[in-house]
Design a protein around this nucleic acid. Structure first.
Lengths: 235, 235
DNA sequence: GATAGTTTCAAACGGGCGTTTGAATTTCCT
DNA sequence: AGGAAATTCAAACGCCCGTTTGAAACTATC
């Protein structure tokens, strides 16, 4: 009546890892295609070629499986982001790295993940993008926890690179940056209809176009110079 | 055995409209809070104070109800966007309106909707934002159809205001703009945790901060000037 | 080669889902 | 008032869900 796997005494857990990995891979693909709610454990375990009960045995619940799917990729990616940022700061000791460089350090791990087909590739980026807009509280809380440290580190770096921005102003702008990024990552196929972009390697292309857009937005003056938002009907 | 309501012969359909409106209002609130999949017709009809079968009677299905929820607000909003743009072009006849003005014409109806508590208010903006990231195909197709004309009109206007951009480049940037907008609208409560923004009238504040960010991004040169995206590990 | 621990398996559990039905009720028009 | 149409209602239909169970099949250790 072992409801959860206990730590293996010795040896390699090849069999177990195989099942677990097969589940994670199938989950990643299906959560991408249909979303969390719309993916049933029955279709998921069928796609993975494992027994229905395997998910609850290895991960505890569907929610914990989803977190495992996210954590498998997010953890190394955000780790890499932090390391890149630290390298930047070490390299230009004393003076703050430029806004462009900081932003690139943030985007590059995402791009690298998108390119790495062996380990999830573009599929997973769409999972992140969608997860960020998901209404389920456990997803939001989990993502917030996963990203918190990374975002805080980058906020400090951007603050030094963009001294004309208050902390609050920058918080908003980082939110916009993550928004444009998540959204763009999430809707690659929607883009195909919408934007008639037909190339296969969309993601690199997209990040190369996204970067200058975001850099300019980050560097913009804090208040708009021409015109103001008014509610009087157009005349 | 009337499976769907036929057109009323004369008179006002006050009773019917009441039930329909109650359903639409409850659906708007619940879809916002829990998403489409996670909202059941049973809790929805209970919240609206109507019979379970009323949704299928008045709207046909849960999916059609969702489309009705969207269309009730999106239709007038996009109509207003188009009218504002036409007013802009009439007003500055011949020469193209500035990028700022075109963008404001696009944002203003969303802001006005956010302010209009009587008719959905901020709740609904979050529904749109989430719908845009939803994996369900029927939602994407529906939104694409709803937005297609408006987006096309604005694309032409932006093209004239930003002659340094190719059509393809602008398509990407409009995608980023809509992404940042949807995402920001969708995650107002996430923002509260994330950004420690505590004011009640967030949406106006947000659009006022979003506008300069987006204007700068739209105006940015087509290719980034300093640095390039490279995959060599940070060094 | 017995034994203890780990993993798989088929089957079932209880429950919630969207939708349909057909009768009861209300509303509208002559 | 009467009859037709529109609307509401309680109940049920069939289906799929996430999870649990307990026995069977493995695997590793002594």
């Amino acid at each position: 009546m072992a409801s959860r796997p206990a730590r293996r005494n010795v040896a390699l857990d090849a069999t177990s890892a195989d099942t677990k990995t097969r589940i994670l891979d199938a989950a990643e693909a299906l959560f991408t295609e249909h979303g969390f709610e719309a993916t049933s454990l029955r279709q998921l375990t069928a796609a993975a070629g494992v027994n229905l009960a395997a998910v609850n045995y290895h991960f505890g619940s569907k929610e914990e499986l989803f977190q495992a799917v996210l954590t498998r990729r997010l953890d190394p990616m955000n780790q890499e982001r932090i390391e890149l940022l630290e390298a930047l700061e070490r390299q230009a000791d004393g003076r703050p790295p430029s806004c462009e460089k900081v932003l690139f350090a943030m985007l590059m791990p995402a791009l690298r993940l998108a390119r790495d087909e062996r380990r999830g590739g573009k599929n997973f980026l769409r999972v992140i993008g969608r997860a960020y807009a998901d209404p389920a509280p456990f997803i939001r809380h989990f993502l917030h926890a996963q990203y918190a440290e990374m975002v805080e580190r980058y906020k400090e770096a951007f603050l030094r690179a963009l001294p004309h921005l208050t902390r609050q102003e920058l918080t908003w702008r980082l939110h916009f940056v993550l928004g444009a990024l998540s959204y763009s990552l999430a809707s690659t196929d929607a883009l195909k209809q919408f934007a008639q972009v037909t190339h296969a390697d969309n993601d690199e292309l997209m990040l190369q176009r996204l970067a200058p857009f975001l850099v300019a937005g980050l560097k913009a003056p804090a208040l708009v110079d021409t015109g103001r938002l008014e509610l009087a009907p157009g005349e």
